[in-house]
Design a protein around this nucleic acid. Structure first.
Length: 270
DNA sequence: ATCTACTCCTGATTGC
DNA sequence: TGCAATCAGGAGTAGA
């Protein structure tokens, strides 16, 4: 479930490769969401990693002027392996070999992607991204102005990366439950006060999840690396027909919006 | 300009 | 137990 907190956790987990030189790269399968430019990646031998950071749900590996852009899609994971380990896991697609270990990209569904960018941050996937949800720029006033004319449901709007980045289906559900806003509300009916509540709930839920991710970082450093994404305590997501944790009376309702599952409490989210 | 439905792919789960 | 149908967390794209 790579939404912002999971991507952030992955970025933190692989910081040990900063200031390391890429010795070589192995591409087992270049057929990700976009075909991986094998020749560009194979030319990176000897290049030093300067910084590893996150923007939206993207992982950015800075190499001087150029950059590697990774998206985990729905099922992508990174893991760290010992350099002398020859363990190949099904759906391992790309391996970066460093002096001190290997960084491996695994993705069963291959909805993820990996691009080489010649000039840092200049890439179509990075255009049109909204502000980071944990930044000052993302606040009630911003959100209100951004969505006040939109007829889309508020949940769909929250997941639109042009409005605010990093929120996927799970956290959109959790945020709106926290904010006590019904996911089906048309965005244009959201008041300034409600927009403010949504922005605060967004920060709260995401921060809590990042913290939970931090406690699972050791999984990355086990002999076989990342064991999958952490689970935070979810209040509504996946809890169809279970008692609402807030009012303890109503049960959680599941509906579908924009081909995605939506969960909410009819009593708490009026 | 906005919005919705479709699409890529494999694996886990559900239903018969 | 086996097999087929259904569903899954992202997001670009085509078309309404």
């Amino acid at each position: 479930m790579p939404e912002l907190p999971e991507v952030e956790t992955s970025v933190q987990a692989i910081q040990e490769f900063v200031n390391q030189n890429i010795e070589s790269i192995k591409i087992y399968n270049p057929n990700l969401r976009w075909k991986v430019d094998s020749s560009a990646f194979n030319a990176l031998s000897g290049i030093k990693v300067k910084e590893i950071s996150r923007r939206a749900k993207y992982i950015l590996i800075d190499l001087d002027r150029s950059q590697i852009l990774i998206h985990l899609g729905m099922t992508g994971t990174l893991r760290i392996a010992k350099k002398n380990s020859n363990f190949y896991k099904k759906h391992d697609h790309i391996e970066f070999i460093f002096q001190r270990g290997k960084l491996i990209f695994n993705d069963p569904r291959r909805f993820g992607s990996m691009h080489f960018i010649k000039k840092s941050n200049e890439h179509f996937l990075l255009d049109n991204l909204g502000p980071e949800p944990l930044s000052k720029e993302f606040n009630g006033e911003y959100l209100f102005q951004k969505i006040k004319k939109s007829s889309s449901p508020i949940k769909t709007t929250l997941m639109n990366q042009a409005h605010v980045v990093g929120i996927g289906n799970i956290y959109a559900n959790e945020i709106l439950f926290e904010a006590k806003i019904r996911p089906t509300r048309k965005s244009k009916t959201i008041t300034k006060k409600e927009a403010s509540k949504i922005s605060l709930s967004t920060k709260k839920i995401l921060k809590r999840a990042i913290k939970a991710g931090g406690t699972t970082l050791q999984d990355f450093y086990q002999p076989d690396g990342n064991k999958g994404y952490f689970k935070i305590d979810l209040a509504v997501y996946g809890r169809t027909n279970k008692t609402c944790l807030s009012c303890k009376k109503e049960v959680i309702k599941r509906i579908v919006q924009s081909q995605r599952a939506t969960y909410f409490c009819r009593k708490c989210q009026a």
